[in-house]
Simulated scan of single mutants.
Amino acid sequence: MDIAFVSNVVYPDVTGGAEKRIYEIARRLAAKGHTVTQYSRHYWDGPERIEREGVIYQAIAPGKELYAGDRRSIPEALDFGVRTVPALARAFRDHDIVHASVFPYFPVLGAAVAKAAVRGDAAPLVTTWHEVWLDYWEEYLGRLSPFGKLVERYTARVGQHPIAISELTARRLKDLGRPREQTHIVPNGIDVEGVQTVTPAADGYDVLYAGRLIPEKNVDVTIEAFARAAQNDPDIRLGIIGDGPEREALERLASGMACRDRIDFLGFLPEYEDVLGHMHAADVFCSPSEREGFGITYIEALAAGCTVIGADHPRSAASEVIGDAGLAVRPTTAAVTQALSRSLSGVAATTRPERRAAQFDWDRIAAQTLDVYRAVLDETPAARQPEPRRTGVESTVLSD
């Protein structure tokens, strides 16, 4: 099969969850003999077209700053979306599948325009939806929120075969007018074996949080719940990894607790393995975040052997990810305190965390993505089915 990915960012030149997902899936599909190309901005050193780990990277736009202050740049997204149109018009003829990452929306809109311009048969457009924001646009853009809502809704309604990373995202996509039965579910993943080989931190904590220090993460609830649990267990310690606009307020909150000498703010750690090391050393990973389209840190903590506490909230997919290897509770101090006490006593999980994490290994995620491609191609006219390449390598080889 000949597959094209479309994203304005490319891993590891730009690091983030969406680009990491493309990287992990693309290189695994390439290793299985499929032809894989990613169209992106030119963030790497060297020529506009390179090959790494069997994947071809084709720059269709120069590198550009992604952020304007603390928000993604709208001009950057618009610019890349416009540049995708001429580049992808040919891609829809040359590849069997064109797979676009939805955020920041305009690449998908550009891909839809490019496909419409193709005369004759065009490859199907597959999209990946990491989140659906709906009313969150009001918090993110303020008075410009109607613009964000309009773009999101219109993106959902262009011709595509959507993949959602969780049932939560699929349901919210339905709210944008996309029938639920048309959406495939393929979760995010991690390198489970890689996580499990990391050495535990020597100076670990009993309870750990890792992530941005922003209001919706409810780190204040974690601190308050820990302080209550610590009244009955004078030896437990809490480590908070990460930084953000709430750090100063959270440090003030912690300083007023009787257990303040057992709460440490570690900031951003320099290496990914340092975070994983602390997960291995911890008994409980506590993140009652009320806005999680998925929650990669939950899987990482599960793979490291932690019991995970997440939020039972309409905007969180925590319960989908954690399953019965931890607890999803209301993001209140009382509920999280009870969950902490149960988790620290070892009675919260009925499935071993490592076993739960194995379901999200990248090998499985790549295989599920390939299954979606097969299903999509089965729905297309015969003329769009993969044909043997002129190189002599048959693209009809769809097996793993």
Rank of each mutant, 00 (worst) to 15 (best):
A282L: 06
I60K: 03
P353L: 11
E193I: 04
P353C: 09
A254Y: 01
E273Y: 02
L302Y: 06
A249P: 04
H184I: 00
L327P: 10
G293V: 11
G239L: 01
S345N: 14
Y39H: 02
A366W: 05
A375R: 15
R119Q: 11
R389G: 15
G54R: 01
Q359V: 07
L78T: 02
R83W: 00
V329P: 13
A375F: 08
G305E: 10
E271K: 15
D264F: 00
I185A: 08
R252P: 07
A114I: 12
P331G: 10
A164K: 14
L109K: 13
Q385C: 01
V376W: 06
A301I: 10
P288R: 07
L253Q: 14
I365N: 06
E65R: 11
N8E: 14
A100S: 11
L269P: 09
P75Q: 02
S7L: 07
Q359H: 14
A311N: 03
A91G: 04
V397P: 00
P179C: 12
R237E: 15
E354K: 14
R374M: 07
T380H: 09
A335G: 02
G69K: 01
V151L: 11
Y43I: 01
I296W: 06
V308Q: 09
P62Y: 02
T222R: 03
P62C: 03
E251M: 13
G46T: 10
R171V: 03
P388C: 10
Q338A: 13
W133R: 13
V284D: 05
A382S: 15
G177I: 11
V151Q: 10
Q58A: 07
D13R: 12
P381V: 08
V108N: 09
Y205N: 03
S395W: 15
G326R: 05
L109V: 09
K64P: 01
A335K: 05
R28K: 13
R260L: 05
R41T: 03
L327R: 13
T169L: 08
E354I: 09
T127C: 01
A230G: 08
D400L: 14
L344D: 10
I296G: 05
H161A: 07
G110Y: 02
Y209N: 10
H42F: 02
G256Y: 00
Y205S: 08
R178W: 06
I263C: 09
T332D: 14
D121P: 09
H34C: 06
A201I: 00
V221C: 11
A366K: 00
D96V: 02
V132Q: 02
S345T: 04
R352V: 10
R291G: 04
I263F: 10
E290T: 15
Y43S: 11
E216G: 01
A164Y: 12
A26P: 14
A18T: 08
V376F: 02
P331M: 04
P12A: 02
A328M: 05
Y298V: 03
P215F: 11
Y140R: 14
R342Y: 13
D2E: 15
Y136H: 10
V198T: 12
R252K: 10
I263R: 04
